[in-house]
Design a protein around this nucleic acid. Structure first.
Lengths: 197, 197
DNA sequence: CCCCTAAGATACTTTGCGTTTCTTAACCCT
DNA sequence: AGGGTTAAGAAACGCAAAGTATCTTAGGGG
C-alpha cells in the first residue's frame, strides 16, 4: 500500500499497473473499472497510464491478455463426450463471468474507438490453441470409431468458444447443466452431422 | 421541429419519445445515444423521460422493442437449405449492426442496473415467433424426407438467433458468405446430427 | 556530476447521467 | 363552466469519470 519513496520505472512499473488493473477487473468488473482506481491501486497516477494506453478499454484488454489463464493440456479422457465437457468447462472458466462483461463493455466502447474493436476481435476469433485442441479431440474420437471421418470447417472449430461466450453474454452465467446442454444438444449433434466435405 | 405550444400527454407523447429514441439509435448508435438528445428531438425534456423509464438503457430497449421489424411469414421455398438461408438473412436484417451494438452496450450497463439484464435477456432468449418458425421449417423438411425425424431441443431452436447475434457482436458485420457458412457448416450439420431423443 | 527523461501529483475541462425545483398547461370532475 | 389535480416542460444542479495540461522531482545514463 504505502510503498516508500522508490520511484518505479519502465517494465517494472508497467507490470505493477497491469497487476492493479487485473485486480480491479476481478473485484469490481469492467462496468465499474476506473482508470483512477487503477492508478491509485498501483500507487501511481492517471497520466502515467494514459502515456501507455490510449484509453481505459485498451488498458483493460492489456491486463486481460497478460493475466488470462492458459487452457492447459488438451483433455484426453478416452471418450468424446467427456473430452468435450472438460474442454467446454475450461473455456467457461477461462471466459469467466467477468470476462464476458468485459467483452460486452469493451465492444460497446469500440464504437467510439474503432481501433479497440480490431484489438478485441483479434483476441476473440483467433485462439489457435483452442481450435487445435478441438481438432485433436475430434481426431482421437474418429480414431476410436466414435465418429465417422469428417471435415471440420473453421467455423465448427470456433463453435465451442462462440457457444460459451454467447451464453455468458446473454445470461451472465454458466452452470454445469448449461454446459451439458451445449455439448449434448448442439456440439455433439453438429459433429455427428458433419461429413467428409 | 418547432411544434406549436400544444402540450402532448400520455400515449401520444410516449409514442413521440419512442420515435425520437429510435431515430437517434439509428443515426448515432447506442454508444452516442444520449437522453438529452432524445428529449430535444422529441421536443420535450429529460425529466419527462425519466418519469417513464428508469435509465437510458431501458429507454433504448423500449424503443427497440416497439420499432423492431417483424419477422414476416415463415419462409417456404420448398427446400431446407434455402428456407434456412432466408430465415438467417431475416434474422440478420432484424438484428442489424446497430442492434448488436445496442445489445453490447446495454449488457455492459446491465451490470450496474441488474433489472436491465433481465429485461434484455427476456428479449434475447424468448423470441417465440422465431423458434416456432424454425420448428416449422424443420418439420416440413422432415415431411419431405430431407431430414430423418428428429427431436429439436430448445437450445437448437434458439441456435440460429444465437449464431447470428454472436457474429454481429464479435465482428460487427454479417455478409452473405458468412450466412452461408453458418447454415452449411453449423446449422445444417447440426440438424442432420440430431436424432429422435 | 549534471541533465534529460519519465514518474508522480494536482487540478482542470468536458460530457452525460440522473435529480431537484418550479411553473404552467391541459384534462377531469362535479 | 370553473377549480383542482396531474403531468409536461424548462432550467439548473450534483456527481462521476474520461481524458488532458501543468508542474515538480526522482533517478538513471552519459
Amino acid at each position: 500500500m504505502s510503498e516508500p519513496k522508490s520511484r518505479r520505472r519502465g517494465a517494472e512499473l508497467e507490470r505493477a499497473i497491469l497487476d492493479a488493473a487485473w485486480a480491479e477487473l476481478r473485484e469490481v468488473g469492467y462496468a465499474r473499472f476506473t482508470v483512477e482506481a487503477v492508478a491509485a491501486r498501483a500507487g501511481t497516477s492517471k497520466p502515467v497510464l494514459y502515456r501507455r494506453w490510449k484509453n481505459r478499454a485498451e488498458l483493460a484488454v492489456a491486463a486481460w491478455q497478460q493475466r488470462m489463464p492458459a487452457f492447459g493440456d488438451v483433455p484426453d479422457t478416452g471418450a468424446l463426450r467427456s473430452d468435450l465437457l472438460t474442454l467446454f468447462t475450461r473455456i467457461g472458466l477461462r471466459t469467466g463471468s467477468m470476462m464476458s462483461e468485459m467483452v460486452a463493455g469493451v465492444m460497446a466502447e469500440a464504437f467510439r474507438h474503432p481501433e479497440v474493436a480490431d484489438l478485441l476481435r483479434s483476441r476473440l476469433t483467433q485462439p489457435m490453441p483452442l481450435t487445435e485442441a478441438v481438432r485433436e479431440i475430434v481426431e482421437r474420437a474418429v480414431a476410436r470409431g466414435e465418429l465417422a471421418p469428417l471435415h471440420l470447417p473453421p467455423r465448427a472449430l470456433r463453435a465451442p468458444l462462440d457457444l460459451v461466450r454467447n451464453e455468458y453474454i446473454t445470461c451472465q452465467a454458466l452452470d454445469g447443466a448449461v454446459l451439458e446442454e451445449l455439448v449434448d444438444d448442439i456440439y455433439l449433434p453438429l459433429l455427428r452431422g458433419l461429413r467428409l466435405d
